[in-house]
Measured scan of single mutants.
Amino acid sequence: GTEDLKEEAKKALKKGDKERAKRALKKAGLSEDQIKKFIKEVL
């Protein structure tokens, strides 16, 4: 589900894998702006 994808994105970001995080967030249905915001909040 969406929460799982967001968790996956957080883990990817902590490993420095932004591309993987972006893919997971796109799958979760987030827009580009939401993805940028999510990444900023996590990092």
Rank of each mutant, 00 (worst) to 15 (best):
G1S: 14
G1E: 13
G1Q: 12
G1H: 13
G1W: 14
G1F: 13
G1L: 14
G1R: 11
G1C: 09
G1A: 13
G1M: 13
T2H: 12
T2A: 12
T2K: 10
T2E: 12
T2W: 14
T2C: 04
E3Y: 07
E3C: 05
E3I: 11
E3P: 08
E3W: 07
E3A: 11
E3N: 10
D4Q: 12
D4K: 12
D4H: 11
D4N: 10
D4R: 11
D4A: 14
L5P: 06
L5M: 07
L5E: 04
L5R: 03
L5G: 04
L5H: 06
L5D: 04
L5K: 03
L5F: 10
L5T: 03
K6A: 06
K6M: 15
K6E: 09
K6S: 04
K6G: 04
K6W: 15
K6H: 10
K6I: 15
E7T: 08
E7G: 06
E7W: 08
E7F: 06
E7M: 09
E7S: 08
E7D: 09
E7A: 10
E7R: 08
E7H: 07
E7L: 09
E7C: 06
E7Y: 06
E8G: 03
E8L: 11
E8F: 11
E8Y: 12
E8W: 10
E8N: 04
E8M: 10
E8R: 05
E8C: 06
E8H: 05
E8I: 12
E8S: 06
A9P: 01
A9I: 06
A9Y: 03
A9Q: 01
A9S: 02
A9L: 04
A9T: 02
A9E: 01
A9D: 00
A9W: 03
A9V: 08
A9K: 01
A9M: 03
K10Y: 12
K10I: 15
K10F: 09
K10L: 13
K10E: 07
K10W: 09
K10T: 09
K10S: 06
K10M: 12
K11L: 13
K11S: 11
K11V: 12
K11W: 10
K11P: 01
K11E: 14
A12K: 02
A12I: 04
A12R: 03
A12S: 06
A12C: 05
A12L: 13
A12G: 02
L13V: 05
L13S: 01
L13F: 04
L13M: 05
L13W: 08
L13Q: 01
K14S: 10
K14I: 14
K14T: 08
K14R: 12
K14V: 10
K14C: 07
K14M: 14
K14W: 12
K14Q: 13
K15P: 01
K15I: 14
K15D: 14
K15Q: 14
K15N: 14
K15V: 14
K15L: 15
K15W: 09
K15M: 15
G16L: 04
G16M: 04
G16V: 02
G16S: 03
G16T: 02
G16K: 03
G16A: 03
G16D: 04
G16Q: 04
D17A: 04
D17V: 02
D17N: 07
D17Y: 06
D17F: 07
D17W: 07
D17K: 04
D17L: 07
D17E: 08
K18I: 15
K18E: 14
K18C: 11
K18G: 08
K18P: 11
K18L: 15
K18Q: 13
K18W: 14
K18N: 11
E19H: 06
E19C: 06
E19W: 07
E19N: 07
E19A: 10
E19P: 06
E19S: 07
E19G: 07
E19Y: 06
R20K: 12
R20A: 15
R20H: 11
R20P: 03
R20M: 12
R20L: 12
R20D: 08
R20G: 15
R20E: 13
R20W: 13
R20V: 09
A21F: 03
A21E: 00
A21C: 05
A21G: 03
A21L: 04
A21K: 00
A21N: 00
A21R: 01
A21V: 04
A21W: 03
A21H: 00
K22F: 13
K22D: 06
K22R: 14
K22T: 13
K22S: 07
K22C: 07
K22G: 05
K22N: 07
K22P: 00
K22Y: 15
K22E: 15
K22A: 11
R23S: 12
R23L: 11
R23E: 15
R23P: 00
R23C: 06
R23I: 14
R23A: 15
R23M: 11
R23G: 07
R23V: 13
A24F: 15
A24V: 13
A24R: 03
A24I: 15
A24Q: 07
A24E: 07
A24H: 08
A24P: 00
A24W: 10
L25H: 00
L25T: 00
L25E: 00
L25F: 02
L25K: 00
L25C: 01
L25I: 01
L25S: 00
L25G: 00
L25M: 02
K26T: 10
K26V: 11
K26D: 05
K26F: 07
K26H: 09
K26G: 05
K26E: 13
K26S: 09
K26P: 00
K27F: 06
K27D: 10
K27W: 05
K27G: 05
K27N: 09
K27T: 07
K27Y: 05
K27L: 13
K27Q: 12
K27E: 13
A28P: 00
A28D: 03
A28Y: 05
A28V: 04
A28L: 12
A28R: 01
A28F: 05
A28N: 02
G29F: 02
G29D: 02
G29T: 01
G29C: 03
G29P: 00
G29A: 02
G29W: 01
G29Y: 02
G29V: 00
G29I: 00
L30S: 00
L30K: 01
L30F: 12
L30N: 01
L30R: 00
L30I: 03
L30P: 00
L30Y: 10
S31W: 02
S31I: 03
S31Q: 05
S31D: 11
S31T: 13
S31F: 03
S31M: 05
E32P: 11
E32V: 08
E32D: 13
E32R: 07
E32Q: 07
E32N: 09
E32I: 08
E32A: 09
E32K: 08
E32L: 08
E32Y: 08
E32G: 06
E32H: 09
E32M: 08
D33H: 08
D33I: 09
D33K: 10
D33Q: 10
D33G: 09
D33W: 08
Q34P: 00
Q34C: 05
Q34I: 03
Q34D: 13
Q34S: 06
Q34Y: 05
Q34M: 08
Q34G: 05
I35Y: 02
I35Q: 03
I35F: 02
I35D: 00
I35H: 00
I35E: 01
I35N: 00
I35K: 01
I35R: 02
K36V: 13
K36P: 02
K36N: 14
K36Y: 12
K36G: 08
K36D: 15
K36W: 11
K36T: 12
K36I: 14
K37S: 12
K37I: 13
K37P: 01
K37N: 12
K37T: 12
K37D: 14
K37V: 12
K37R: 10
K37H: 11
K37L: 13
K37F: 09
F38W: 08
F38N: 01
F38D: 00
F38M: 03
F38H: 02
F38T: 01
F38A: 02
F38L: 04
I39W: 04
I39D: 01
I39C: 04
I39N: 01
I39E: 03
I39L: 09
I39M: 10
I39Q: 02
I39H: 01
I39Y: 04
I39A: 02
I39S: 01
K40T: 13
K40A: 15
K40I: 12
K40S: 14
K40F: 14
K40D: 15
K40Q: 14
K40V: 10
K40N: 14
K40L: 14
K40R: 11
E41D: 12
E41S: 09
E41N: 09
E41Y: 07
E41K: 09
E41W: 08
E41G: 07
E41P: 01
V42T: 08
V42R: 03
V42P: 02
V42Y: 15
V42F: 15
V42E: 08
V42L: 10
V42S: 07
V42N: 12
V42I: 11
V42K: 04
V42Q: 10
L43Y: 09
L43S: 06
L43K: 05
L43E: 10
L43D: 06
L43I: 09
L43C: 07
L43F: 08
L43P: 04
L43V: 06
